[in-house]
Simulated scan of single mutants.
Amino acid sequence: MRFLIAFAAVLGYASASAILPLAHLGINAGDAQAAAIDATVAAQDHARAAIEGNLRANEAAVQWNTEAVRQAAEASRDINENAYWNGVAASQNVVAAAQSQAAALNGIAAARAGLWGAHVAPVGPVAAWGAPLLHGGLGIHGAALRAW
Rank of each mutant, 00 (worst) to 15 (best):
A97L: 06
A43M: 08
L25P: 03
A57I: 14
T40L: 12
E74K: 13
N28V: 10
A39N: 15
R48P: 02
V69P: 04
A144D: 10
L134A: 04
N93L: 06
G107W: 11
D78F: 05
G26N: 02
P132V: 02
S17E: 12
A42V: 03
P122M: 00
A32C: 05
A111L: 07
P122H: 00
L134Q: 11
M1L: 09
L115C: 07
G107M: 00
L133H: 09
L134P: 04
A35C: 09
R48G: 13
A104N: 01
I140Y: 07
Y84K: 13
M1P: 14
A89S: 00
P125S: 12
A109M: 00
A144K: 01
A29G: 01
L25V: 04
A8Q: 01
A39V: 04
N80M: 10
A83G: 03
D31S: 04
A143C: 08
A60E: 10
A32T: 05
A57Y: 13
P125A: 13
A6T: 15
L105S: 12
A50V: 01
I19A: 07
V69Y: 12
Q71E: 10
I19K: 01
A143S: 09
I19R: 02
A102W: 02
A83H: 12
S100P: 04
A29E: 10
Y84V: 04
E52F: 08
L22K: 01
W116C: 11
T66N: 09
P21M: 00
D78I: 12
Y84Q: 15
L20D: 03
A73L: 13
V62M: 03
G26E: 05
D31W: 04
H24I: 06
G12R: 05
H119N: 15
A29D: 08
